[in-house]
Design a protein around this nucleic acid. Sequence first.
RNA 1: GGCCCCUUAGCCAAGCGGUAAGGCAGCGGAUUGCAAAUCCGCCAUCCCCGGUUCAAAUCCGGGAGGGGCCUCCA
Length: 497
Amino acid sequence: MALRVYNTLTRQKEPFQTVQPGRVGMYVCGPTVYKPSHVGHMVGPVIFDTVKRFLTYLGYQVTWVVNITDVDDKLIVEASKQNTTVSALAERVTADYCKNLERLGVTGIDHMPRATHYIGEIVGIIQGLIEKGYAYPAGGDVYFDISRDDDYGKLCNRDPEQLEAGARIEVSEKKRNPGDFALWKGAKPGEPQWDSPWGPGRPGWHIECSAMSMKLLGVTLDIHGGGLDLQFPHHENELAQSESFSDAPFVRYWMHNGLMRIEGEKVSKTREEEQKKKAILGVSEVLQKNEPETLRLLLLNTHYRSPIEYGENRLNEVRRSLEGFYRFFERYQRVTGNSFYELQAPTTRAQSPSRDLGETSPWFASWRSFVEHMEDDFNSGGAIGVLYELLNRLNRFADEKKIEAGGAAVDVEEFSRGVFVLRELSQILGLFREPPAAKCGGNDQLVAGLMQLLIDLRNEARKAKNFALGDQIRKRLAELNITLEDRPGGKTDWRLG
RNA sequence: GGCCCCUUAGCCAAGCGGUAAGGCAGCGGAUUGCAAAUCCGCCAUCCCCGGUUCAAAUCCGGGAGGGGCCUCCA
């Protein structure tokens, strides 16, 4: 099988072919940095991070760009509200954004260009568009003339005529057609501004993406991603201006991710207050209260084009399902003495030992099935299902071979091969990068010592058949949210929760 | 009004013409002194109505319900 990707432009899955063999240029629309991000803002980054990981696994050299919109009306308003400058506000919010991406394991972004750093390029493109007759200056602004662009609306099936009928578009006497959009906005006094042939002003919303993607990735992008809500007008307009300027196809594959919702409704700014009552929206807060990969797994569990159901319940369910993995990793460590998290698995298929395991290996089917799911338009949900199955197979293998009670060396070896497959595959999803926050009192020597003392006392009581006392110790510990687990060999482990 | 999309068990969710993955919860069993953990088993005919086909959750038509976009939005 080979990779197939759904393209919004054609509304179907297509075989994946890049402009340059072996290389992928991927551009994903990033945030306007005027407010700390909410959970919905993390959907795209996590998904496309996974897309990059998988493409890399397939052997592609991926360059991924996420833009930062650091000048715009909302920023101007918010900055004056906070009595700070637009650039200071932008820097602060950007830092918060990046910190959260890092926690979530979004590590693959190669460039994060700021719109304000590309004013020269932006002006150049606008000038080119005017020269070619696609744009016109009007009273300090510059607009793109959609009537000059034959295939305007092709991404979203928009008919320019009907844009007028819609009549919900901002009315401006400066525009020739209601659907025309600003490439350059003349500055009002006190607003951030840059010089241009049309007077001082700032770029319109869409043009920065055309300018930065072209500069960093070339005229034709392999992948352009973003939320479904950006299809129109943002991507439609990007597409129109870019192709009008370059005369080359702008994007090979348009990928749009589904939006996050709470009780069936899109997580949005307009309903923010109402939704806050139902679930935690702020990313920083969510990640403080949850293992970051809980959110990552929640996002990846649903196919990227579908809406993602979010809420406290979902978070809890996913957390519980992760516990199974965490316990297994402890089991693996008990058996081999090695940390799962420190296993060095290859990040490309070419270097993978999994593909050579062969049909007879109990782990091979999992590996193949996982890759096939991902090759089918990045079906991470299906791939995660494979991971759970693999987990189950590994536990069963360990049970059957009695691997914890001093199993045969060959079995331990076979077991380790399977664990290695799990390491390799989970890495593609960016999961299990590091151990979850301490489940056993951290490195606290005192707690560890006291726990050992209690465990020893309980085990002595049990040996003396004084189960009442033993059970009392366990019960009292349970009241403190501590669970004891007796191992076959007579050893007892403990954990929080 | 226009353009998209969705509807699978209590909840989340995969499925893309060949007879329903997986997770959470629940139930029964193995194991355990009892637990915990793990394992085994059980738990849906896919919103409704027609049609195409040897065969449809999957394709077509109609209906019902839900969502997104057309205004800032990941």
